[in-house]
Deep mutational scan, measured.
Amino acid sequence: SEEEEEEWRRAKERGEEIIILGILWKPNDEEAERRIKEALRRV
């Protein structure tokens, strides 16, 4: 969703871990980033 995407962007800017759509994303975690982008597209 729009607000999840916004939340994720803010976490990326701050360089902090975030759990979004049930996926743990850490800074520079390209695999998780790809999965999150896929999940955001499906929503």
Rank of each mutant, 00 (worst) to 15 (best):
S1V: 15
E17K: 05
V43I: 12
E17F: 07
E31S: 06
L21Y: 08
K37R: 13
G15K: 06
R42H: 13
R10M: 11
P27N: 03
R14V: 08
E4Y: 15
G22D: 04
R35H: 05
E16V: 11
R42C: 09
E31G: 05
E2C: 08
I18A: 08
L40W: 05
I36T: 02
K37S: 10
E16R: 04
P27F: 04
L40R: 01
W25N: 00
E5H: 11
E5A: 10
P27T: 01
E4A: 15
N28K: 05
G15D: 03
R41P: 02
K26A: 09
E5P: 12
R35M: 10
G22W: 05
L21D: 01
I23T: 03
K37L: 15
K12L: 06
E16N: 07
K12Y: 12
E7W: 15
N28F: 13
I36M: 03
K37H: 10
E38W: 02
I19K: 06
D29L: 02
W8Y: 07
V43R: 15
P27W: 05
R9E: 13
E3N: 14
K37W: 14
R10E: 08
V43C: 08
E38A: 07
E38T: 03
D29Q: 04
E7S: 14
R9N: 10
E5G: 05
E2H: 15
E6L: 11
I36F: 05
A39Q: 06
W25Y: 04
E3L: 13
K12E: 02
E31V: 08
R14F: 08
R34M: 10
E33Q: 03
E38K: 03
S1P: 12
E13W: 06
E31T: 07
G22T: 05
R41S: 10
P27C: 05
R41N: 14
E17L: 09
E6F: 09
R35A: 13
R42G: 13
N28E: 09
R14S: 11
S1M: 15
I20A: 01
R42N: 12
K26V: 13
E5R: 06
R14H: 08
A11D: 02
I20S: 00
I20F: 12
A39N: 01
I20C: 00
E30S: 09
R34E: 14
A11F: 06
L40E: 02
E16L: 11
E3A: 14
R42P: 07
E5S: 09
K37T: 12
I23A: 01
E13S: 10
P27G: 03
G15M: 07
D29F: 04
E6I: 09
R41D: 13
I18W: 07
D29H: 05
R35E: 08
R9H: 11
R34C: 08
P27L: 02
L24R: 08
S1F: 15
E33T: 10
E17P: 15
E17N: 07
R14K: 14
R34N: 12
V43N: 09
A39Y: 06
L24V: 09
